[in-house]
Design a protein around this nucleic acid. Structure first.
Lengths: 118, 118
DNA sequence: TCCATATTTAACAACTTAGTTAAATACAGA
DNA sequence: TCTGTATTTAACTAAGTTGTTAAATATGGA
């Protein structure tokens, strides 16, 4: 599977996103990560495997614990991909903005399209 | 399924990302969208359904054609979610940057390692 | 009305995913 | 070496995804 698909696929699960959110405030062991979830340890272990293979986390061994930490670089490609589409939602916002402005008693009429500044 | 999962799940397929890329340069009918793919029309139709349900595209009817267009707003939540993690990859870059600076006392001509684009 | 074009729905197969429990493995310390 | 704690792997099931072909539906025009 291509890298982008693997990343988005890994992010498409609420449990995995919750794991990432936890790791955003610091590294943790598998047991610590699993604790808040109403799910067996093997299930969490597999979510961690998916995140690792997607490059979103990295793991190190400390005695009998496996410490997991966020791997920022793993987000970059997906974030860059998304960034390309930013203009579309900003443009949409501008359209709404323009619409609201045109609703206000202002004589400016016509089909012009506002562009947001970068 | 929650909205974020639905969005990321929709993006986790190269065919669907290719469809979005095409729509980024303008709206198109189902037939036009399907044309470049080595895949049956019903298969493309289903990808479009997934994208529609994820809110990433919107459709309108014109005679017997269904016109599809990018729906920027649909990207926003996922992009915002990603944005939260930006500091992690930027921080990682900064760490590398700092490491390289500390490793090379005098940034002279003989560069030992290429720097990634800023 | 009937036909051609555009698209979706139905029915199906192959494959993947996400969870379960039970067993296996890894390591630290008595 | 034996034991307890931490974690992964195996085997299995249920459900979901992606593709196929055939049939159904929608629309405009002769």
């Amino acid at each position: 599977m291509d890298q982008l698909s693997q990343t988005f696929s890994a992010l498409a699960d609420p449990t995995r996103r919750a794991i990432l959110a936890k790791l955003a405030s610091g590294a943790a062991t598998v047991g610590e990560i699993a604790e808040p979830f109403d799910m067996s340890l093997p299930a969490v272990s597999r979510h961690l495997k998916v995140l690792t293979e997607a490059g979103l986390i990295e793991r190190s061994t400390e005695a009998q614990w496996r410490r997991c930490a966020l791997r920022g670089e793993g987000f970059r490609a997906a974030a860059d991909w998304m960034e390309f589409y930013r203009r579309f939602w900003e443009q949409q916002f501008d359209r709404l903005d323009a619409f609201l402005k045109s609703t206000v008693p202002t004589p400016a009429k016509g089909k012009r399209r506002a562009r947001r500044k970068p």
